[in-house]
Design a protein around this nucleic acid. Structure first.
Length: 466
DNA sequence: AAAAAAT
């Protein structure tokens, strides 16, 4: 199966080829033909399955003919977060480079002026978060009567965020004769109801849930206590070959405090969470992508969809409340065939959340405590295993890991540690890192995805005033 | 219980 078999135009195929993709993911293979046939669609899939390209590619061809009129967008894509909306816009830029489609991004946190101007020129693809869309609609800047293609992305997350009433209202503004695509990782009753009400005779596609986690990500649970959490984290950061890391926390306040304390201790870190102004959020992401900082402390605003190349480590400073979020968070590493390591700190408070994560993924995450040495004894490395390459370490201000970590004391708690003996550097990676059991599904993270690898595209920087 | 999203 190739993209050429799916009925896409030659111009589009050449853009897909230029992006380096040849083989569609399962959801792309089943969704693209039916979107091209203008059918309604329910796609049960999460990010990382190639879901975005599954609707972006056929939409480009469907919209290739016809002209947009002022204030009357021809299609609408609803996204739960601003960052995801921006990434979808970037996908249109990438795959639509051989087409003359006008794309507009309507998100909050930035001035409306440019967005209104874009609307008045006429747009083919409108990508929006619900709040700003409703706002501009209320001001009479948008007419949705010409919008006969609607995509509701990440519907279950929209539900979590209380957007469903907004979505319903938006749906009633669109023409009844239209094509609607709904994507959701799960189908809780309110989403099912939404689909029954606003989709007609939809084709349902379900790709195996990526509740299983990517094979190339090595996972560890690190038992610690609330008081020792920060010291444990810093010790891991120093002991590991961290090139770039994202550290997730459940609370915005923790994100701020943790970042401050890391900076104080000499780490090149930054932060991202929903209390920051949008330009700051984007600027911080840019600093992370450019390597100016190599550690990003983040709330779950960054858990889903963000695709940053070369993230070597994910740390869960807190175990996420929602087990699904665990899969999303650690999915920020190990992308595009690279290997990654995910550490989750575990205090007694986190135990219940971790139990749910293990239930969801169907695997027991190995405990890091003393585990590394024991694993090697128990399971010698396969002869074919490649020696562990030391990742190039970017300067981090201070390097304090040359000396062995101190043994537990009052202020240097008994965090799990791994002594860096010379021979350990030669040890094969696979034995050192207990492999995670094989996923129970065909989840894959290659193929066209929600990629946002490059710098912030110009058109976004412009619109976002960054 | 938390974060996100219009301000």
């Amino acid at each position: 199966m190739t993209f050429a078999d799916l009925g896409l135009s030659d111009e589009l195929l050449s853009a897909v080829t230029a992006a380096g993709y040849t083989e569609p993911t399962p959801i792309q293979a089943s969704a693209i033909p039916s979107v091209l046939m203008m059918r309604d669609l329910i796609g049960i899939a999460q990010t990382g399955t190639g879901k975005t390209a599954a609707f972006v590619l056929p939409m480009i061809d469907v919209l290739a003919h016809g002209r947009s009129r002022a204030r009357m967008p021809r299609s609408l894509i609803l996204e739960p977060t601003r960052e995801l909306a921006a990434q979808v816009a970037e996908n249109f830029e990438k795959y639509g480079k051989n087409h003359k489609l006008s794309v507009a991004l309507l998100i909050g946190g930035v001035q409306m002026g440019d967005q209104v101007k874009a609307l008045e020129k006429g747009v083919d693809v409108l990508i929006a978060t619900p709040g700003r869309l409703m706002d501009l609609f209320g001001r009479g800047k948008i007419l949705l009567t010409g919008c006969n293609l609607l995509v509701i992305d990440e519907a279950d997350r929209m539900l979590d965020m209380g957007f469903i009433p907004d979505i319903e209202e938006i749906c009633t503004k669109l023409p009844a004769q239209r094509q609607t695509l709904l994507f959701s990782a799960t189908m809780p009753p309110p989403i099912k109801k939404l689909a029954d009400r606003f989709l007609s005779n939809p084709k349902t596609i379900e790709v195996s849930r990526p509740a299983s986690t990517n094979l190339s990500i090595t996972q560890w649970l690190v038992p610690t206590s609330g008081q020792k959490k920060r010291a444990t984290l810093e010790r891991l950061l120093r002991a590991e070959d961290v090139t770039t890391a994202i550290i997730f926390s459940n609370r915005k306040t923790t994100v701020r405090e943790l970042n401050k304390s890391l900076q104080r201790d000499g780490f090149r870190s930054g932060e991202i969470h929903g209390d920051m102004e949008q330009p700051q959020r984007l600027a911080e992401l840019d600093r992370f992508k450019s390597g100016e900082i190599n550690i990003l402390v983040a709330s779950d605003v960054a858990a889903r969809g963000l695709d940053i190349k070369g993230v070597s480590h994910v740390f869960n400073y807190d175990a996420p409340w929602h087990p699904d979020d665990y899969v999303h968070r650690i999915g920020r590493t190990g992308r595009g065939g690279a290997t990654g390591v995910a550490f989750t700190l575990m205090t007694p408070d986190d135990a219940e959340n971790i139990e749910n994560i293990e239930k969801l993924t169907g695997t027991r995450i190995p405990r890091w405590e003393g585990g590394a040495e024991a694993e090697v004894e128990a399971a010698p490395a396969p002869a074919s295993a490649e020696p562990r390459e030391k990742a190039p370490r970017k300067g981090r201000g201070k390097r304090r890991d040359e000396t062995p970590a101190p043994v537990a004391s009052e202020d240097a708690p008994a965090a799990p540690r791994r002594e860096r003996r010379p021979e350990q550097a030669e040890r094969p990676a696979r034995a050192e890192r207990a492999p995670v059991p094989a996923p129970s599904s065909s989840f894959r993270s290659d193929g066209p995805d929600e990629g946002w690898n490059g710098p912030i595209p110009d058109f976004l920087s412009y619109k976002l005033g960054a």
